[in-house]
């Protein structure tokens, strides 16, 4: 149930209108940098620095062509897509299995396992990046997408496990017993009974991991230092800035290619974004 404090009384129209207008102005300024880059991606370089207006004179689609083909953003787009999709699958399967066992069973060593997990919550990524880089080199997977994907999936926030564990622990025992009566084993119970029940958590975890994998920067920038072919979009735009630093409109187009998919996803799946984010403080 939702609770609200309606300190703007419905009768008080003046207060209502003032607050609404204040928020509209605030929202416009807030979102302006994003609108600015979107509009810049359709402008000529000359026009970008010409004024504050957001509507381009004509839509310069060539910016996107230059970014996609010339600056290789097309390739980076698919790299990022592969890393994101595969790491989401890995993360959902592994943390789902982990959370299931932690949430429903007790076994020797469980407390130690949870303790180790919790202690890694606040380990900054910067702290582990150098050995990860070295590890991928030693395993000979630093020069292709496998290493980057695994490392992206491996730095899994503990919150995913806690979300799964919390959800699984609330599933009634009767369901499981019924499955046992039918002769379903451990794995079948998990796959056919339990997993379908957790669709909301799967959605939340998937979205959080998409957000993480798509937007990550430190890991891909380090791993791809010597391998431009496996760059992700974020790293690609960063390299773009270094290589063609006068092509503002092309860079704006490359930025839009990077951020638009996630913004669209967010607009359609907002509920799960919010649930995932709020899960961190509710727990």
């Amino acid at each position: 149930m939702s609770r609200y404090l309606n300190f703007i009384a419905e009768k008080n129209q003046v207060k209502y209108v003032i607050i609404t207008i204040a928020f509209i102005i605030f929202s416009f300024f807030w979102i302006y940098p994003l609108l600015w880059v979107l509009s810049a991606s359709f402008k000529t370089d000359f026009e970008i620095w010409g004024g504050l207006g957001l509507i381009p004179d004509r839509l310069v689609w060539e910016n996107f062509e230059r970014a996609w083909f010339g600056a290789n953003m097309g390739r980076y787009f698919f790299n990022t897509l592969i890393i994101t999709v595969v790491s989401v699958i890995i993360v959902v399967v592994t943390t789902g299995m982990f959370g299931y066992v932690i949430g429903r069973y007790s076994f020797p060593g469980k407390k130690i396992l949870i303790g180790i997990l919790i202690s890694t919550i606040f380990i900054p990524q910067g702290y582990t990046i150098i050995p990860v880089f070295d590890l991928l080199n030693n395993l000979n997977i630093s020069k292709n997408l496998i290493g980057l994907t695994l490392a992206t999936a491996g730095h899994t926030p503990v919150i995913y496990i806690l979300l799964f564990a919390g959800y699984f622990s609330r599933v009634p025992v009767e369901l499981e017993e019924a499955a046992k009566m039918d002769g379903a084993g451990f794995v079948r119970t998990f796959i056919s009974i339990m997993l379908p029940l957790t669709k909301p958590v799967v959605a939340t975890v998937s979205i959080l991991q998409v957000l993480h994998a798509w937007n990550d920067f430190l890991l891909p920038v380090v791993i791809t230092l010597g391998n431009p072919d496996i760059r992700t979009l974020s790293v690609g735009v960063y390299a773009f800035k270094g290589e063609y630093f006068v092509d503002w409109s092309g860079m704006a187009a490359a930025s839009v290619i990077t951020i638009l998919p996630i913004i669209v996803l967010f607009l359609f799946m907002q509920k799960y974004f919010v649930e995932g984010v709020q899960g961190a403080v509710k727990g």
């Binding site: 928020f23 509209i24 929202s27 807030w30 979102i31 920067f217 951020i259």
Partner: peptide
């Protein structure tokens, strides 16, 4: 958190928008 504020969901979406935008892109755009 005011239920009466009809545009509240819209404002929430707008304020949340930078969160989902790739941080490296924000750095470059800025």
């Amino acid at each position: 958190n005011n239920q009466v504020l009809k545009l509240a969901p819209f404002f929430r979406t707008v304020i949340f928008m930078p969160v989902v935008t790739a941080i490296a892109i924000i750095g470059i755009v800025m």
